[in-house]
């Protein structure tokens, strides 16, 4: 088989980019699930809101990509905090499935509103001028913006991992996940921690959305399909481990990219097929504790 190196590398890079988004989104889902015991079906919609926030900031406030990178997660995370206070906080004592149903309803509302307003064709968002252009690697060309997306999301993922696994705040979070009552007895405000955790997870989704905006067009339906793939990623990795979510996200992105090169017909389904194989051989997931 002839291997066209630049084409293969191009697909690998796209795979890594998708993997960055899978990793950021499944990381957010895992963090939220750990604290709230809710699968956040609105995660895809919040990713889309991040991209729209970047578009709005540029269009109406004249704030560029770099501002959007900071402000969009804060704004969308803030909306997430409102959602948690208004809706999710009433569900913690109920069966987990109600959280899934409620956030699914929220996703329908959010996506419906955006589609009503902006249709389903994408809005353009320019690559920031500092990151345009390509770098010559000798055997192929690497667009600067794509390299930036991969490096920056990797940094955010590792930063999140460090915060949760190695800092005092992270220790509180992990303790509250294990036994919220006991942690409250130590005088820590667990309900506020839960609220902020949801805001943080949503912020991660929005951050992914901002980074996706210059690559894919800003589109009301951009989150609807990716969230189902991310669910499969989460099933494969298991939600028990933060590092597991990151590794699985990037890894599956790369596998998807390779499939696009070698067997393009299966590129849409390869992650689901891997999910089936993992479930048959290791039902708890690659990194998961038995759930």
């Amino acid at each position: 088989m002839d291997i066209n190196l630049p084409a293969l590398f191009g697909q690998l890079l796209i795979g890594l980019i998708n993997g960055s988004f899978y990793a950021l989104l499944s990381l957010g889902l895992a963090v939220i699930f750990g604290m709230l015991n809710i699968i956040n079906f609105a995660h895809g919609a919040q990713y889309m809101m991040g991209a729209f926030a970047a578009y709005f900031l540029l269009q109406y406030a004249g704030l560029n990509y770099w501002w959007a990178l900071i402000l969009a997660p804060v704004i969308v995370g803030g909306i997430g905090i409102v959602i948690e206070r208004a809706f999710l906080q009433w569900l913690y004592k109920l069966d987990h499935l109600y959280g899934l149903l409620l956030t699914f309803g929220l996703a329908l509302i959010i996506q419906g509103l955006f589609r009503q307003q902006y249709g389903s064709s994408g809005l353009p968002y320019q690559i920031p001028p500092q990151l345009t252009g390509v770098r010559d690697l000798g055997f192929t060309f690497l667009p600067n913006y794509r390299a930036w997306v991969v490096c920056f999301s990797l940094a955010v993922c590792l930063g999140t991992w460090y915060m949760i696994e190695k800092t005092r705040l992270g220790a509180y979070l992990r303790a509250a996940t294990e036994n919220p009552t006991l942690v409250r007895a130590f005088g820590i405000n667990v309900p506020r921690m839960i609220t902020l955790t949801y805001g943080f997870g949503v912020g991660l989704a929005a951050l992914a959305g901002v980074m996706a905006a210059p690559i894919y067009a800003v589109n009301p339906t951009m989150g609807a399909d990716i969230i189902i793939v991310v669910f499969a990623v989460v099933v494969i990795g298991g939600m028990g481990s933060i590092m597991g979510a990151i590794v699985t996200g990037f890894g599956l992105g790369v596998v998807e990219g390779l499939t696009k090169y070698f067997f393009p017909e299966a590129s849409n389904t390869v992650i689901f097929v891997i999910m089936v194989i993992v479930l048959v051989t290791r039902p708890a997931g690659l990194f998961g504790r038995v759930a």
């Binding site: 699930f33 699968i39 987990h96 499935l97 899934l100 399909d225 189902i228 793939v229 669910f231 499969a232 989460v234 099933v235 389904t269 689901f272 097929v273 999910m275 089936v276 479930l279 048959v280 039902p283 759930a291």
Partner: peptide, 17 residues
Amino acid sequence: RRQGIYFAMITLALAQM
């Protein structure tokens, strides 16, 4: 092979496939 919330996600992923 999985319970609860995972069951829902797996059925959704299989249907998408």
